[in-house]
Nucleic acid binder design. Structure first.
Length: 104
DNA sequence: AGCGCGGCTTTTC
DNA sequence: CGAAAAGCCGCGC
């Protein structure tokens, strides 16, 4: 199912996240109209049919942790991408207080 | 402050 | 079509 309006909106929302900034699954879920679908967001990203056009690595958990990303193995890649765009990641977490983007 | 449990939605086999 | 897993979140102890 790579055509659900939900997934599409999720990808679109994430694509709006500017470089050097991050967002949370919960925030993205809210923006698509399902504030409790934070988990579904992860599931949709996991399928990620637009891995190249959707910066899914800019999406982290509400606690600031990166979450899973490719089963806890691609996290290292995710961290590098984030730091590379200007988002310092230490201990596998980011400073949501300064880099959290919710102003879609 | 750190750990544990249930709940909500979507995707996949 | 039915059931299980998933890149989670919030509240309670």
């Amino acid at each position: 199912m790579s055509g659900s309006s939900f997934a599409v909106e999720v990808y679109r929302t994430i694509s709006k996240i500017p470089s050097g900034r991050v967002s949370t699954y919960g925030e993205v879920a809210k923006n698509v109209g399902k504030p409790k679908a934070s988990r579904a967001v992860g599931a949709a990203l996991r399928a990620n049919p637009h891995a190249t056009i959707v910066p899914c690595h800019r999406v982290v958990k509400s606690t600031g942790e990166l979450g899973g990303y490719n089963g806890l193995k691609g996290i290292a890649r995710k961290v590098e991408l984030l730091e590379r765009e200007g988002v310092p990641v230490r201990g596998g977490k980011v400073d949501l207080a300064k880099y959290l983007f919710v102003d879609f």
